[in-house]
C-alpha cells in the first residue's frame, strides 16, 4: 500500500533500518512482509512467535527521531494486541484509534475492542467510520453500501470522540493497490478532505496533551 513491496530491511550496528518509501525519508515503515522471500509466502505462526517478532520490532528497529509512530494491528483482542499494549505501557502511548465500517456487525467488534482499551487502560483517541457511503463516479449519487452512522452512534453511546466518516472511493483502493498516496493524488476528493481533517484534529489533540511537538 505504501509502494515498498519487495524492499528489504537492512541491519545496522544499531538495529534494523526501516524502509523509506521516498527520498525525503519523512515516512519510515516496518513490516513482517519485508522479511519474506516471496509475496505468497505465508507466515504460519502461533502466538508466541508472533509476540517475539512484535517485541523485536519494538525494540530493535532504529526509527531515529519520530513525531508519530502508527501501529497497524490485525482484528481482534488477542496476542498481537496484548503484546503491543504491554510492551508500550512504560512509554505512555497516546492512545488507540478504532476503525469500524458502518454495519452493526462491524460495530459489534469495535465495542469489544473498546472494552479491551478500557481494561488495558489504553486511552481511546476516537472512532473512525470507514467505507461510509459510496459516491457513484457516474451519477454522483451517494449510496450507503454498508449503511451509515454506526460508528457515530457508537462514539456517542460510549462518550468518545467521533473523528469522521470516510466515504468509499474507488480511487482510494486503486491508489493503495498501486502504492500511491491518495491524499496527494486526489487532494480535493471528499475522502481526502475528511482524512486531512482527522489527521489535523489528532495532531492538535496529541500536541495539546503536551506529547509530541
Amino acid at each position: 500500500m505504501l509502494n515498498v513491496e519487495g524492499k528489504d530491511i537492512h541491519q545496522s550496528s544499531q538495529g534494523w533500518i526501516p524502509v523509506y518509501p521516498d527520498a525525503s525519508q519523512s515516512l519510515a515503515v516496518m513490516s513482517i512482509a519485508f522479511l519474506l522471500n516471496r509475496r505468497d509466502d505465508p507466515i504460519v505462526w502461533r502466538g508466541p512467535k508472533k509476540n517475539a517478532m512484535i517485541k523485536q520490532f519494538l525494540s530493535d528497529v532504529v526509527w531515529g527521531e519520530l513525531d508519530y509512530l502508527i501501529i497497524d494491528t490485525p482484528p481482534g483482542t488477542s496476542d498481537e494486541h496484548i503484546t503491543v499494549v504491554e510492551s508500550l505501557q512504560e512509554y505512555n502511548p497516546d492512545g488507540a484509534i478504532l476503525v469500524t465500517t458502518p454495519q452493526a456487525v462491524a460495530v459489534g467488534d469495535v465495542r469489544r475492542e473498546l472494552t479491551f482499551c478500557r481494561k488495558t487502560k489504553l486511552p481511546v483517541l476516537g472512532v473512525i467510520e470507514n467505507m461510509s457511503g459510496f459516491v457513484c463516479p457516474h451519477c454522483s449519487e451517494c449510496s450507503n453500501v454498508f449503511s451509515k452512522g454506526g460508528g457515530e452512534a457508537l462514539a456517542r453511546e460510549f462518550e468518545i470522540p467521533f473523528l469522521g466518516c470516510v466515504p468509499l472511493d474507488p480511487q482510494l483502493a486503486r491508489c493503495l493497490e498501486q502504492g500511491q498516496s491518495y491524499v496527494d493524488a486526489f487532494p480535493s476528493s471528499p475522502s481526502s478532505q475528511v482524512l486531512h481533517k482527522i489527521a489535523e484534529s489528532l495532531h492538535q489533540r496529541t500536541t495539546i496533551n503536551g506529547l509530541p511537538s
Binding site: 502461533r46 502466538g47 508466541p48 509476540n51 483482542t77 488477542s78 496476542d79 494486541h81 496484548i82 459489534g108 465495542r111 469489544r112 475492542e113 473498546l114 472494552t115 479491551f116 481494561k119 488495558t120
Partner: peptide
C-alpha cells in the same frame, strides 16, 4: 453482554 471482550492469547483460544 455484547460489550464483553475475550482478551485471550493463543493457548486459551
Amino acid at each position: 453482554s455484547p460489550d464483553d471482550a475475550i482478551i485471550w492469547r493463543g493457548p486459551k483460544k
